[in-house]
Amino acid sequence: MTAAEDLDMEGPTDAVHVWYMDLDELSSRPHRHLESALGPDERARRAAYPEARSRARFTAAHGVLRLLLGRFLDIPAAQVRMRCGPMGKPALLPGAPPVHFNLSHAGGHAVAAVSVGREVGVDLDRPREGFPLESFARRYFPPSESDLVLRAPREERMRVFLTLWTRKEALVKAAGSGIALGVGQPVGGTEDSVVVTAAQHRLRGTWRIRALSPPFGVGAVALAHSRPFRVIAHGWAANEGA
């Protein structure tokens, strides 16, 4: 499958491709093709992880992302050139095709998102045992959102909290900002698709956010502008790209 066939490389599209990855499954097999896809900056970042499992997960997630970008750009993965924005969001170099991408991971799972012509942010999170979500929501979320969390049945509160949290993360990542700005930004209720207009400097603009249905945890993806978009979901097989 060539994902670029579903996208118009000449202008904005109303689709985003997302790939779900089981990082531990990918790491359990020989992954020389993932290793060779990494660039020098990624190799340096990976070396900072003290644990072998963390380094292996990093190789899997970032290697897959580079292989995906290589498909969209029709070049070898190792030749994909990136730069980081002021808040660390990676992007292609100026003058490259308008391919936007983002990556998120939670433990042994990850999701990559790629779109054309619209900035994208994606987030994946998982339930956390013992996390004080009620007090966190009460302190940091807007009142309408903290009420959503606190009024939900106890067994549903973590899901509601993560639905709102992943939206905020996806939004700030699409904007190339940090979660400190986004935690207080209203992101609507719990419906599957919302339009958010943000006035804060580094979030300013209109964004459409959609819920994802990952095989693990809770996820959301945000694209610039209010137009609806399709989510085209894929899984990444352990031997794919080898």
Results as ranks from 00 to 15, higher is better:
residue 126 R to G: 07
residue 114 V to H: 05
residue 209 I to P: 05
residue 128 R to Y: 08
residue 86 P to F: 00
residue 16 V to F: 07
residue 189 G to D: 11
residue 165 W to D: 01
residue 80 V to Y: 01
residue 60 A to V: 08
residue 115 S to C: 02
residue 39 G to V: 14
residue 176 G to T: 08
residue 73 L to Y: 09
residue 161 F to Q: 01
residue 232 I to Q: 06
residue 68 L to K: 00
residue 131 F to M: 11
residue 185 Q to L: 12
residue 229 F to A: 04
residue 25 E to R: 15
residue 107 G to Q: 15
residue 1 M to F: 08
residue 120 V to D: 02
residue 7 L to Q: 00
residue 109 H to I: 00
residue 218 V to A: 06
residue 93 L to V: 15
residue 50 P to K: 06
residue 77 A to E: 00
residue 173 K to T: 02
residue 5 E to N: 07
residue 222 A to I: 08
residue 57 R to K: 03
residue 205 G to A: 11
residue 199 A to H: 09
residue 2 T to S: 13
residue 40 P to G: 08
residue 179 I to D: 00
residue 124 L to I: 02
residue 233 A to P: 00
residue 119 E to M: 11
residue 45 R to H: 07
residue 39 G to L: 08
residue 112 A to C: 14
residue 158 M to K: 00
residue 216 F to N: 07
residue 116 V to F: 06
residue 80 V to F: 06
residue 82 M to H: 07
residue 53 R to K: 15
residue 140 Y to K: 02
residue 31 H to N: 14
residue 142 P to I: 03
residue 212 L to I: 10
residue 43 R to L: 15
residue 138 R to V: 09
residue 51 E to A: 14
residue 114 V to D: 00
residue 152 A to C: 12
residue 40 P to A: 11
residue 198 A to V: 09
residue 27 S to G: 15
residue 124 L to M: 04
residue 42 E to Q: 13
residue 148 L to K: 10
residue 2 T to N: 12
residue 208 R to H: 04
residue 46 R to S: 13
residue 180 A to T: 12
residue 116 V to H: 05
residue 238 A to M: 08
residue 154 R to A: 15
residue 226 S to Q: 14
residue 13 T to Q: 11
residue 193 S to N: 07
residue 98 P to S: 09
residue 181 L to C: 12
residue 99 V to I: 13
residue 79 Q to L: 12
residue 208 R to P: 05
residue 202 R to W: 14
residue 61 A to P: 02
residue 126 R to C: 07
residue 25 E to W: 10
residue 73 L to G: 02
residue 2 T to E: 13
residue 22 D to R: 05
residue 216 F to Y: 13
residue 21 M to V: 13
residue 142 P to Q: 02
residue 84 C to I: 12
residue 11 G to H: 10
residue 141 F to H: 01
residue 145 E to M: 03
residue 59 T to A: 08
residue 76 P to C: 10
residue 112 A to H: 08
residue 186 P to D: 04
residue 107 G to V: 14
residue 153 P to S: 09
residue 188 G to T: 11
residue 187 V to H: 00
residue 78 A to D: 12
residue 180 A to Q: 10
residue 202 R to I: 04
residue 120 V to Q: 04
residue 63 G to R: 04
residue 168 K to C: 02
residue 77 A to R: 01
residue 98 P to M: 06
residue 36 S to Y: 10
residue 228 P to W: 11
residue 67 L to I: 06
residue 205 G to T: 11
residue 26 L to G: 02
residue 55 R to N: 01
residue 207 W to K: 03
residue 183 V to D: 02
residue 236 W to E: 05
residue 156 E to D: 14
residue 198 A to K: 04
residue 100 H to D: 11
residue 82 M to W: 13
residue 129 E to W: 06
residue 176 G to F: 08
